[in-house]
């Protein structure tokens, strides 16, 4: 056997990783090679001494049972409380999915305002720039013949009966728009009935309004 191979095997043997059949081969080599034998003995001694020394390294001011128990106590005391851990899990979720969180908050707020707006919806609401000339009879909003409205007219939950002239847009939500033969609308006239349309109208009005 080559001595270089034998040296590698010596280390493997000391690491407990040399296969049994190779141990026999190593032994027979050691028996025939004095240089390797003395090297192996020294390595073995070094290994044992280092092992022993590290085993012996202990603090002089004894790390005894009492010190150990004190340390255990300190470890257990420094642990964070369970409650904050629970909250951490929630906070961690928010950090992990910021998009989902933002979307959830947005949806919640929009839903809330949607419902409050929906509930207000049973009353007749009339909005416009020039309301003095408008006549309201029960659920009907009348622009009388000969009247001339400057600006827009919006009617919610009612019927708009346009007999005169309107310069701007006429919007009717959840109601009807009657345009008399004498009536004239310069802008757009719209009737909104469905919830989605209504919602979209609210959103565009809210954002358009705030952007202005």
């Amino acid at each position: 056997m080559n001595c270089n191979v034998a040296i590698v095997w010596m280390h493997d043997y000391l690491d407990g990783e040399l296969p049994r059949e190779d141990i026999a081969a190593l032994k027979s080599h050691l028996a025939s090679c004095p240089a390797c034998r003395s090297r192996f003995e020294l390595l073995q001694k070094t290994d044992a001494a280092a092992f022993q020394t590290l085993e012996a390294i202990k603090p002089a001011a004894g790390y005894d049972k009492k010190a150990s128990e004190q340390l255990t106590q300190r470890i257990m005391q420094q642990l964070p409380k369970q409650q904050s851990k629970e909250r951490n899990r929630f906070v961690r979720f928010i950090y992990r999915y910021p998009g989902v969180t933002a979307a959830a908050v947005f949806a919640l707020v929009m839903l809330g305002s949607f419902f409050t707006m929906w509930e207000e919806d049973n009353k007749l609401i009339v909005a416009g720039e020039d309301l003095q000339q408008v006549v309201i009879e029960g659920n009907t909003v009348i622009v009388p013949e000969g009247a001339h409205l400057t600006g827009n007219l919006t009617v919610e939950n009612g019927t708009a009966d346009v007999q005169g002239k309107v310069d701007g847009n006429v919007t009717v939500i959840d109601g009807e728009l009657n345009l008399a033969s004498t009536g004239y609308i310069a802008g757009q006239s719209r009737t909104i009935d469905q919830a989605l349309d209504w919602f979209w109208y609210k959103v565009t009005q809210t954002f358009g309004g705030s952007a202005r």
């Binding site: 470890i75 257990m76 642990l79």
Partner: peptide, 23 residues
């Protein structure tokens, strides 16, 4: 959240870790 279970882990490893760290 079982602190007793954690205390057992501490008990198993505390001294081993101390000696390793000390060395």
């Amino acid at each position: 959240g079982d602190q007793q279970a954690f205390a057992e882990l501490v008990d198993l490893y505390q001294d081993k870790l101390f000696h390793m760290a000390y060395r």
